[in-house]
Every structure is written in structure tokens, then in C-alpha cells.
């Protein structure tokens, strides 16, 4: 496997691994209740955000199953940290990867997460040769649901009250997409369909 080439440039973003200096940018969104409602790692104060940052700074590549790659979404121009996306290599034999994402609500709704995820999917399928990428989200998280649909993912599971989450019954959705279903953004676009001339 070729070594990973970072950072990744997209139209409006630079995707790079986290750095120590990201602490303020991360604190601006990671501990917000609206974000905390849906994330796995609880961060309620600055010290916990520092802990989360430390963890994510270690997510620099996928060497073995279980590893996670986490990329900060940096806006070109003002270099603002808008959020982050991550890819976890959950199963090697069946080539499964899980994506997670988190955006500062102040920058939501402008397609940044979608742009970053597209680059991560290209990476997952083309670089890491993952067979299937899946994502999970809370059943009430309408923004994520819409995003998953825009990414062309299929709703594969809708669990009701299958677990407890933060003291309440959980409702969870699973979305997934296979390698052969993903429309690469970096590949040459197909030419428009023309009528075949016999």
C-alpha cells in the first residue's frame, strides 16, 4: 500500500491531521450540547477537549484493523477549523470501514462536510481498498441523515431501542455504500451519453 499523501486539497478545504494548535478551534464546537448529543466521546470542558484532541492527533493512518484516520477540515483562505471527518478500519477480512464526522454548527449547511467526506470516500476505496463504507447516526439527526442520502448511501438498518445512549433508549440508523457504487470525484468524468451510431 502506497504511503498516504496528506494534506488533501478539495475545492474549498484542506484536510490534514490534527495539530496541538487546533485546541481552540476544536473547543469551539466539540463541547457544544448540540454536537455532544450525537458523538461517542464525551467532552464537556477544556481538559476533556484536550484529551479528545490528543486522541485524534494519533489518528494519522490505517496500518491495521481498528486504526482510525481523523482529518481536520481546514477552510482555505482563513485557515479556520470547521470540523473533522474520520475513517475507521473496522474489519480487514471483509474490507469494512466506518466514517464519522462532526462540523461546527456555525459552518453547517454549506456542504463542507459533504466535500470532506467525498475525499475520504475516495481515500477509503482507492487508497485503502475498502469494500464497504458505513456510517451510523442517531435516528433524530436529520442533518446527518440528509447528508448520508446525498452521499448516495443506502439505509441498511434502523434499530429501535436496541441500546441505551446517554440514559435514553437509542434509535440508530446505518447507512452504507459499496466500492462499486461510489462515484469517484477524482476520476475523469464520463462523457455525456451519446446515441450509438451503428
Amino acid at each position: 500500500m502506497f504511503s498516504l499523501s496528506l494534506p488533501i486539497q478539495t475545492d474549498r478545504l484542506i484536510l490534514r491531521t490534527f495539530e496541538r494548535s487546533d485546541i481552540d478551534g476544536l473547543a469551539a464546537y466539540h463541547a457544544l450540547p448540540s454536537v455532544q448529543r450525537y458523538v461517542f466521546t464525551k467532552t464537556r470542558d477544556t481538559s476533556e477537549v484536550a484529551g479528545a484532541l490528543n486522541l485524534m492527533r494519533g489518528h494519522v493512518s490505517l496500518q491495521r484493523p481498528g486504526d482510525t484516520l481523523t482529518l481536520a477540515m481546514i477552510r482555505k483562505g482563513d485557515q479556520a477549523l470547521l470540523g473533522h471527518v474520520s475513517l475507521n478500519w473496522s474489519d480487514a477480512t471483509a474490507g469494512q470501514g466506518e466514517v464519522r464526522f462532526c462540523v461546527n454548527p456555525a459552518h453547517a449547511g454549506q456542504g463542507f462536510t459533504r466535500e470532506a467526506l467525498s475525499a475520504v470516500y475516495d481515500l477509503a476505496f482507492d487508497h485503502f481498498h475498502i469494500h464497504r463504507v458505513f456510517a451510523r447516526c442517531d435516528g433524530r439527526n436529520h442533518h446527518s441523515i440528509k447528508l448520508m442520502q446525498q452521499m448516495g448511501m443506502r439505509l441498511e438498518a434502523h434499530y429501535r431501542e436496541h441500546a441505551l445512549f446517554q440514559g435514553e433508549w437509542d434509535e440508530e440508523l446505518h447507512f452504507a455504500i459499496l466500492d462499486r457504487e461510489w462515484q469517484r470525484s477524482t476520476k475523469v468524468k464520463d462523457l455525456p451519453v451519446r446515441h450509438r451510431v451503428a
Binding site: 471483509a94 469494512q96 464497504r132 438498518a157 434502523h158 434499530y159 446505518h174 452504507a176 459499496l178
Partner: peptide
């Protein structure tokens, strides 16, 4: 019972996609 999940190729089963 309600069908809550329909997973495609999420794992290998007897050497084939499950």
C-alpha cells in the same frame, strides 16, 4: 417482528459476501 436491517456485503460468510 420488524425488519430492522438489511446488510449487504458487510461481512464474509463461508467465503462469500454476506
Amino acid at each position: 417482528m420488524r425488519r430492522e436491517a438489511h446488510f449487504r456485503e458487510h461481512a464474509l460468510f463461508k467465503s462469500q459476501w454476506d
